[in-house]
Nucleic acid binder design. Structure first.
Lengths: 215, 215
DNA sequence: TCAAAAAGTAAACACCGTTCACTCCTTTAG
DNA sequence: CTAAAGGAGTGAACGGTGTTTACTTTTTGA
């Protein structure tokens, strides 16, 4: 692990400019996503030339990577807190899912970007290390730990493999987040026989997921 | 509904060129997605000028729309067949989910494009009609019908609203498809305590989803 | 003080989606 | 059969993109 020292004035100034660029990027990205965020426009916003951006970030992808990784760190944090909360296991499990989805829905473009990349074009072996050290990888471990607890405590079916069950939960949570972000009005529609607030639906969905793993 | 007549030679020729462009686009899109498919490159591939493409399609978005809508029609079709199969309800329900995911995984870029659009930037009311007439809308109705059957037959909890339960199923299925398309190697990883083929995992996930709704 | 390193930039490269004015050819009406 | 009309097709341009290169200016540290 490389320790970030920034004790000289020059280094502090550099870091400040970097943060300035990053936060300007954050604003545009949150509102308009990867399309709306262009290096040239970003440069105009922070009063630098486009080329200057490249003194601080190797490429647009690298810049966006930092934005989305910071965002996913927030998800990881909140979910982690949920797992360790002081309440019955079932409630914690449900809240894990609900928390994940709620934050994903707060910043649709960030969440989408975190999963937008490659369409399985790189070999799994090459991607594995990168994944395991990412916030996504850590979030998965947290979730897996929770499933292990559920199995040990007899809440979840004993034949479940925690790793696979965690992936199933993750997939279902991810799906709801994506749907809410990309289908206008989801889960509501005019002709529903019953109506339900967006948050109530998140809870309903979380409940279905957890039920599916119970004994 | 407007009936497409194409009886004059001119109309037939026009349609042929349109199909030529569409199929050239399909090939590039399947391999490289929306990024890789550029109007200029497409024009080179079919030996026309870029401007000529615009005589057949109003915009790139319109062209991609046709590709993804045709693809989703395939999903709709397969799922519909599954719903009407002659086998126990539970099996049909599971197969519905599994079929959906399997096809989504066949063409990752098509599937992604079908959900890639807006990030809830247009009003739900404006989008509703478009949705209900789309293949996505129809697929949802099919799924909802299946849930209604499940509730009526006593397989699913009686307190379930079919519309909302269908959305929950859809979200979970969508999630798995997206994960498999965008996370290399999902659901496998080296350190899994148990291993499972991709297709076995789809079945496992489908089972969890259906279990979550059962009485 | 002065060389070296860092910060910053203008201009260019190679793309992109899209539009417009224009030619050429086919269709159709008289 | 001919002439007008309309459709097919195009080259060139507009305004945008990410990125690189050669260059100037500023800052740093011995």
């Amino acid at each position: 692990m490389h320790i970030e020292t920034h004790d000289t004035p020059a280094e502090r100034r550099r870091l400040k400019v970097r943060e300035l660029i990053l936060s300007a990027a954050e604003n545009v990205f949150a509102d308009e996503g990867e399309e709306g965020l262009s290096i040239r426009r970003l440069a105009r916003n922070v009063d630098y030339s486009p080329a200057a951006i490249y003194k601080y970030f190797g490429s647009k992808d690298e810049l966006v990577f930092e934005l989305k990784e910071a965002f996913f760190a927030r998800i990881l944090n909140s979910v982690h807190r949920m797992v360790d909360a002081h309440c019955p296991f079932s409630d914690r499990a449900r809240s894990c899912v609900a928390t994940y989805v709620r934050i994903a829905v707060e910043k649709p473009y960030h969440y989408a970007a975190a999963f937008a990349g490659q369409v399985t074009d790189i070999a799994p072996e090459d991607w594995q290390p990168e994944f395991e050290n990412s916030n996504k990888g850590l979030a998965f471990l947290v979730l897996k730990g929770m499933v292990e607890e559920g199995v040990d405590m007899g809440h979840f079916r004993a034949d479940l493999d925690p790793s696979l069950a965690a992936k199933s939960i993750w997939a279902s949570s991810h799906g709801l987040a994506m749907m809410m972000n990309h289908i206008p009005g989801f889960p509501m529609s005019k002709h529903d026989t019953d109506t339900m607030s967006a948050d109530a639906f998140i809870v309903f969905h979380a409940d279905n997921i957890i039920r599916g793993l119970e004994v």
